[in-house]
Write a protein that binds this DNA or RNA. Structure first.
Length: 694
DNA sequence: TGGCCTCGAGTTCA
DNA sequence: CTCGAGGCCA
């Protein structure tokens, strides 16, 4: 790069970074995720390293953060609050590189260095000043030299002691991070939503925003936590020899210190810590960016010193970002089994949370409008603890494009309007679409005329929990419906191997497998068949309830709304769904066809409609969690149900037993919380075995 | 009527 | 897994 170009780029980057600093630190309204900001910052750093003549005294790299907010008194830090360098390589190599650097700087290439390892919190750094053990002042980092006096707000954080236990030091400044736990964040937002008040975007913004609340009464309502991780100015207190001993001392004074820390030896210890924390990351009660490594010996820390504003003896080693920026290429609209129209954002593929994400649901029109996602927008995508990616929100300025369009607002697409986009018609069948008063969803009115709904209905029918027709997946159904071979459910049972073998990715062998699977499914339990029909509001459990109560399909079909409501857990809504389903001539036609021995030849396993009162586990509710060694969860479920037990999906005080297999999750915790008896696999086998003898 | 508990339905990627 | 809503009970 030519010097002139480099100079121009540096000016651009500085302006950009300053603006984001202002957004982030002063306005608490970041426009871009941290990873993106870090990247801009690193680019400027790199540029200034290559061209030292470009460095200006007011460059953002010369300071650590933003600037004090008007309204809070400025506080000059006696000992500057430095930032910590981030290792660029997020793989294990990052840890090795840091250790190698430390040994080289110390001139001891062979030494095994002792490190203190901690978590890197996603929050806001604070300096707490204690004089003779009393909290006299709390300040934010600000620009590192001067922060803001937020003592009033910090006093409202219960975890922060106003007086230290057994510390009479003339001055002891404690540094740490204010954060919001995930649970507190969720609870806070739930409450805000209930009252129709604005919610917080993420816990980090919550923490930063609360501390900077000018009204301490408002700040006090935000549930904040704090962890101490270091020291500022110290007078009249003999420093221990190591960082870990400092933290122990702070904990003894009554300050919260995070328990997830370790003292390790050399690079292997760092790698090990990084891995262990990465595994735990999702189950921690708070968000973290990564981990921090610090040379443990304070003497060695001093020897290593600083490069400009960053200590040589510490680095942050981050994890893959859970949030990333990407561009919405298009908004597709999918048609579900019930005709529900779901907008889906087609994204420029982006690596986030360990996998590449290219689709994200926008749920419905209101949700899309609330987030104001439009085609062409840059959005923040998150893939946190759970697996499913979500669009967190729109970024109104993309740093890479705003450099180009620095002067004006970027052109945006139209606000999302589902009806207008579809011209009022289902994208698959062209039937008109409706949205009932008070409903969130638009629906296609085409019913089974709509190919999309037919495909979904067939897939549902073939599903594992329904008729369990192995091999009949979405690709095959797609082909069968599109080619016109299968129009409705009975057509499935008229398929032969020769027809199937003509299809894409279908040879004789696979074709025969499908035919066999269909043959096997001709004999089905009533409950599965009812579920397979796909009646609105009738899922697996309700289908079982109906089958058990009525015993035969004929009785279910002929039942009036009143009779239907006598089934446990069936109220007016479900009863109406069932009743109307069996009044629809097309549905009756399909069912008759399926059960006609001369046509499809399905045979239902029907009963006489007695309850299961006589069974040994009648009236007991089980919840299964974790993985069992000897059988699948579904098998365990059907065994239990065969004995009259009810198997529910979540634990409550009505649960009689929780069966915990290997790697049981939150359900086990909940069981312990509620004092519900927990069985291991042996316990389950014992119950199943014993009950069989009865 | 309000506050649980459940159930139903929709969702992503390897 | 999570959200929304149906159903039940106090």
């Amino acid at each position: 790069m030519m010097t002139a170009q480099a100079a121009q780029r540096a000016v651009q980057l500085r302006a950009e970074i300053e603006r984001h600093n202002h957004q982030y630190y002063v306005l608490d309204a970041p426009l871009i995720p941290d990873a993106e900001y870090d990247q801009l910052f690193r680019e400027l750093q790199a540029l200034e390293t290559s061209y030292p003549e470009l460095v200006t005294p007011d460059s953002p790299t010369r300071r650590v953060g933003g600037r004090p907010l008007e309204g809070f008194a400025p506080v000059r830090h006696v000992v500057p609050m430095l930032s910590i360098r981030t290792e660029t390589d997020i793989s294990d190599a990052g840890a090795l590189a840091f250790d190698a650097r430390v040994r080289r700087e110390l001139g001891k290439p062979e030494a095994v260095i002792e490190y203190a390892c901690e978590l890197k919190f996603d929050g806001l750094a604070l300096n707490l000043r204690y004089e003779r053990g009393v909290l006299v002042q709390a300040a934010t980092r600000g620009d590192g030299e001067t922060g803001e006096d937020v003592t009033q707000n910090v006093r409202t954080i219960r975890q922060i002691p106003l007086r230290l236990a057994g510390c009479e030091a003339e001055v002891l400044e404690v540094r740490g991070e204010v954060y919001m736990s995930r649970a507190d964040f969720g609870r806070y937002n739930d409450r805000q939503r209930e009252h129709g008040l604005p919610t917080l975007v993420n816990p980090r913004n919550g923490a930063a925003g609360s501390i900077r609340q000018l009204d301490p009464a408002l700040a006090a309502r935000r549930p904040l936590s704090f962890y101490a991780y270091g020291l500022g100015e110290v007078r009249g207190w003999a420093l221990p020899e190591s960082h870990s001993a400092v933290l122990d001392a702070l904990a003894a004074f009554g300050l919260p210190v995070c328990g997830e820390r370790a003292v390790v030896q050399g690079a292997p210890g760092l790698v090990d810590f990084h891995r262990r924390v990465a595994e735990k990351r999702d189950s921690l009660p708070f968000d973290i960016d990564g981990v921090v490594y610090k040379v443990n010996s304070l003497a060695l820390q001093q020897e290593l010193g600083f490069v400009t504003r960053e200590p040589r003896w510490a680095v942050a080693h981050k994890f893959p970002a859970e949030e990333q920026l990407t561009v919405v290429r298009d908004i597709d609209i999918q048609v579900g089994r019930t005709g529900k129209l779901t907008p889906v954002a087609k994204l420029e593929p982006v690596f986030v949370g360990g996998t590449t994400v290219s689709n994200a649901t926008l749920h419905n029109e209101d949700e899309t409008r609330r987030k104001d996602v439009r085609i062409g927008d840059t959005v923040i995508v998150r893939r946190a603890g759970d697996v499913i990616p979500e669009v967190v929100g729109v970024v109104l300025e993309n740093p890479s494009t705003s450099l180009r369009y620095a002067q004006g607002e970027r052109e945006r697409g139209e606000p999302f309007d589902l009806y207008a986009r579809l011209g009022g018609k289902c994208p698959v069948c062209g039937s008109h679409i409706t949205r009932e008063e008070g409903e969130a969803d638009w629906r296609c009115t085409g019913g089974l005329v709509c190919a999309a709904q037919r495909k979904q209905a067939i897939l549902h029918f073939a599903g594992r929990r329904a008729m369990d027709i192995e091999g009949l997946g979405d690709k095959l159904v797609e082909q069968l419906v599109d080619s016109g071979i299968v129009h409705s459910l009975p057509d499935l049972y008229r398929l032969d191997a020769a027809t199937l073998a003509g299809l894409d990715r279908m040879a004789e062998r696979s074709a025969q497998n499908i035919v066999d699977a269909l043959q096997k499914s001709r004999h089905a339990k009533l409950a599965r068949f009812i579920f397979a029909l796909g009646i609105r509001n009738v899922g697996e459990t309700t289908a079982k309830d109906l089958a058990r109560h009525f015993g035969t399909l004929g009785k279910v079909r002929d039942a009036d709304v009143e009779r239907l409501q006598q089934v446990p857990d069936v109220g007016p809504v479900v009863a109406a769904s069932v009743y109307e389903f069996f009044r629809e001539p097309h549905n009756i036609e399909v069912i008759d066809d399926l059960l006609n021995p001369a046509r499809c030849g399905l045979v239902l396993e029907e009963g006489d409609g007695v309850g299961s009162e006589g069974l040994p586990l009648y009236g007991k509710t089980f919840v299964l969690t974790g993985t069992l060694a000897s059988m699948s969860r579904d098998e365990a479920k059907s065994h239990l149900e065969a004995l009259g037990a009810k198997v529910a999906g979540s634990v409550s005080k009505n649960t009689d037993f929780v069966v915990a297999g290997a790697e049981a999750g939150s359900k086990l915790d909940k069981a312990q919380q509620l004092g519900v008896p927990v069985l291991d696999e042996n316990g389950l086998m014992e119950i199943l075995g014993r009950s069989k003898e009865w």
